[in-house]
């Protein structure tokens, strides 16, 4: 039997915002499906908010863990965007007035108010993604997991998603994002977990993880463009710090390099 995940040890603290990265088939989606109990561990245990997922029904975990799938079409089904968003709330037994309020909030946060009575299937790919996100946000789970939220999104849409992740984080939620988008991960997360062939090969701050060339290579990742530039530069100029992620950070170093007597 081939293990998709093998000896994974991971703890995520309340309020953390982490990105999980790794090659195609590394086990990222498999891993996150364990968090809401859709999958149960073959060996070992998964504890979420104190609940042992092997002993807890998915329906209970689902109240606390929202999972937004990679392909929104895998979770959309209702006749209108409004109904889609209201569904979980109604299932959990919330009274009508609360459902209305939450649906309004979710529609506005995801900029979908004008589509409230539209069928989700008539919307564009990016818009359907937003509907899927809205339907999860509406019931306010403590933990929100996003599987590849930025695929197919243009730059401005990605910034909006980053803002939403920030907003959720400020609300005290724990955010887990599976992503291939290196630049997005580098800019928006304080902790990056790199999974490769079922095991964690790196876990730490972006500047540390993205300059760990071995781990990056194993997981078929590339460093963010700025870090890659720093790494190349460092081959000629040892004073360059490879743990650089920002444009400004590298700019300052290069200015010092070309004008060593200039104080920036």
């Amino acid at each position: 039997m081939q293990y998709v995940l093998n000896g994974v040890n991971l703890s995520v603290r309340s309020g953390e915002k982490i990105a999980i990265m790794g090659e195609n088939g590394a086990g990222k989606t498999t891993l996150i499906k364990h968090i809401n109990g859709l999958l149960k561990p073959t060996r070992g245990e998964v504890k979420v908010l104190g609940y042992d997922t092997k002993k807890t029904p998915v329906s209970l975990l689902a109240r606390h863990v929202g999972l937004v799938l990679q392909n929104p079409d895998h979770q959309l089904f209702a006749e209108t965007v409004e109904e889609e968003i209201a569904f979980a709330l109604r299932n959990f037994g919330y009274p009508n007035d609360i459902v209305k309020k939450r649906v309004e909030w979710a529609l506005n946060v995801m900029d979908l108010a004008r589509y409230r009575r539209t069928s989700p299937f008539l919307l564009s790919g990016g818009e359907r993604k937003r509907v899927a996100i809205a339907s999860i946000l509406s019931y306010d789970p403590e933990i929100v997991i996003f599987d590849e939220p930025t695929t197919g999104q243009d730059y401005l849409q990605k910034q909006k998603i980053a803002q939403i992740l920030n907003l959720l984080s400020l609300q005290g939620k724990t955010i887990i994002v599976v992503t291939h988008d290196i630049e997005f991960a580098a800019e928006n997360f304080e902790r990056i977990v790199v999974l490769s062939r079922g095991t964690i090969v790196a876990d730490g701050r972006p500047e540390d993880v993205f300059s760990d060339i071995d781990a990056i290579r194993k997981a078929r990742l590339l460093p963010p463009q700025i870090t890659a530039c720093a790494i190349e530069l460092q081959k000629h100029y040892p004073q360059i710090n490879v743990k650089t992620i920002s444009v400004d950070g590298l700019c300052q170093q290069i200015l010092k390099l070309v004008n060593p007597f200039l104080s920036s």
């Binding site: 090659e23 195609n24 590849e148 695929t151 197919g152």
Partner: peptide, 11 residues
């Protein structure tokens, strides 16, 4: 049309 949307960077 966005052929690498779901691919890891090396791929």
């Amino acid at each position: 049309d966005e052929p690498t949307a779901n691919l890891d960077p090396v791929s």
